[in-house]
């Protein structure tokens, strides 16, 4: 532990309750700008209607996780749930985080209080998760009502979506800490958009040649989609544990890097 870390992380055990105040701060902000959050809820819904039901009529049934045929909308609904949670968390962890860190000096003022950089990192990621989680819950209710949920295991789909939000949000935040200017966000789009399109979201991974499958399976969104699809369709297996471990590991690495970076940037 560097000297700087020691300055800011004096009493790590109290980190979680203190980090809560970051969430409180963000609630203050969004009390006035809640429309921004609401818009993120509709995006996956539009995809579901346009592609799931519209295009789905042409596609008919596709091969589900256990090789069984399922309607196309049932196939993509969990993927859209995953994507919505990811996008919500990433938007908060990258763009908003960047401005708080570099332009608003929000964190500098917070670090003059008993809060530490770890509190800031944990609080901000928790907030990103809350935003992603709200989308997941909203979307889950919609697909349940539409009959696109095929298993009681689906109750675990929201926690699974949160796990995906944690992994992608934490890594997004870590990446943002290296960014110099807002133009660097183009990089995030270059990563997030293809991931959204190609992570076995809209068609089964078996569509790819063997060599490419390995690459696709390595993306966090694929891991999240596979996990959530298994839960909503009702195909449960031990490989799900691998998805969980993968996403947890990714999240904690992101959180650790973020803390280290904040330490270097804010506590010179």
């Amino acid at each position: 532990m560097s000297a700087a870390t020691a300055v800011a992380t004096g009493q790590p055990r109290r980190s979680v309750p203190r980090a809560w105040h970051l969430i409180e701060r963000n609630l203050f902000v969004y009390r006035r700008t809640w429309t921004i959050i609401v818009s993120g809820f509709f995006e996956p819904l539009f995809y579901l209607v346009g592609i799931g039901f519209g295009l789905g009529r042409l596609v008919g049934d596709v091969t589900g996780p256990a090789g069984q045929p399922i309607p196309y909308a049932v196939f993509i609904a969990p993927a859209l749930l995953a994507t919505g949670a990811m996008n919500g968390a990433v938007a908060e962890a990258t763009f908003n985080f960047f401005f708080k860190l570099n332009f608003n000096r929000t964190f500098q003022s917070i670090l003059a209080t008993p809060l530490s950089v770890r509190d800031v990192a944990v609080g901000e990621i928790a907030w990103a998760l809350i935003r992603g989680g709200l989308y997941a819950i909203g979307f889950m209710m919609v697909i349940a009502v539409l009959g696109l949920v095929r298993s009681p295991w689906a109750v675990l789909a929201v926690p699974a979506a949160l796990l995906l939000g944690f992994a992608t949000g934490a890594v997004g935040m870590a990446a943002t800490s290296f960014m110099r200017s807002p133009t660097d966000f183009d990089l995030i789009n270059i990563i997030v958009l293809p991931m959204f399109l190609f992570s076995a979201t809209f068609y089964p991974i078996e569509t790819y040649p063997e060599a490419i499958r390995g690459i696709v399976a390595f993306t966090p969104l694929y891991q999240g989609v596979a996990l959530i699809r298994g839960l909503t369709v009702g195909v449960i297996g031990p490989e799900m544990l691998i998805h969980v471990v993968y996403l947890l590991a990714m999240g904690f690495i992101g959180l650790w890097v973020t803390s280290r970076r904040l330490d270097r940037i804010l506590l010179k």
């Binding site: 000297a3 020691a6 300055v7 800011a8 004096g10 009493q11 109290r14 003059a112 209080t113 008993p114 809060l115 530490s116």
Partner: peptide
């Protein structure tokens, strides 16, 4: 300050 930063800042 190296060990009790949060407490001092309080």
């Amino acid at each position: 300050p190296a060990t009790r930063g949060p407490e001092i800042r309080g």
